[in-house]
Design a protein around this nucleic acid. Structure first.
Lengths: 138, 138
DNA sequence: ATGAGTGCAAATAGTTTGCAAGCTG
DNA sequence: CAGCTTGCAAACTATTTGCACTCAT
């Protein structure tokens, strides 16, 4: 349980990235939410305005390049980041009304890789987000 | 072959939307590309600046609401629209280098619906885009 | 000490909105 | 001819960049 953040910090270290208070704060926010959040949301969730919004963008970008978080995209195009994919890659189902997020454990990554291989594509990645209206909001 | 556009026009009519030259041009552009394209790309593809960029945005938005096109999102957050999903829902694999797009016919829509039903979500939709580097670009 | 990281201001990209004028049904 | 559509200008949102300063290593 404690490990999500520590794991992330360890990975930062591995990649030669520096451990700053701002980065720790952002990681904490992501860990507490355990749902994908945008840079703005992550920034808003920080206690005491722990860092500038721009820094949130930059850190999340770094995190993604270091494979510490995974990138997703909302229906409206905003980018969202999610911590905790270390072992279990998964996706999300988000309510258009209240934003509530459920984790869904299906992924067509394997099939995708086969097809991509067939076309000769490499460095595969995919984005997949599901949206709907939750029981409370309908 | 001829039908993609005609079909779309028919559906416009059904929905009580008007058939204008601008809309026809945009549909033509989408049909010729048969790959997802952004509003800006669709606009750029129009011969003779057939309509304003804003109109392209508005039309595509209408088309999507009328279920004439499907909405997707790129890795960077730009929205893309794709014609021709009338019967065969599918997804795409896009090259990060040259933008080349391959159609992929897998979709976890069914599994998704089951899970969503389990959570009580309705009005499901999903976005899924795959990215990689094609043989030519690597 | 040295270069990665940060904050602030300003620039961009993509998309949306307000309003008067134009065209479709 | 009524109202959906369009064009143009301007507003907006999400994100990126330039630059001087600061702090982790």
């Amino acid at each position: 349980m404690t490990s999500l953040i520590d794991e992330a910090i360890a990975r930062l270290r591995e990649k030669g990235l520096r451990i700053t208070d701002q980065r720790k704060s952002i990681l904490r926010a992501l860990a507490e939410a355990e749902a994908p959040m945008s840079a703005e949301e992550a920034h808003a969730a920080l206690v005491n305005e722990a860092c500038d919004l721009v820094t949130a963008y930059r850190c999340l970008d770094q995190f993604e390049k270091a494979k510490i978080v995974e990138l997703g995209v909302r229906e409206n195009g905003t980018k969202v980041y999610c911590l905790g994919h270390g072992q279990g890659h998964h996706h999300h189902l988000t309510c258009r009304g209240c934003g509530k997020t459920e984790r869904i454990d299906i992924c067509m990554g394997k099939e995708l890789n086969e097809i991509a291989a067939h076309f000769g594509f490499v460095e595969l990645s995919h984005v997949m987000e599901a949206f709907g209206v939750c029981p409370k909001c309908k």
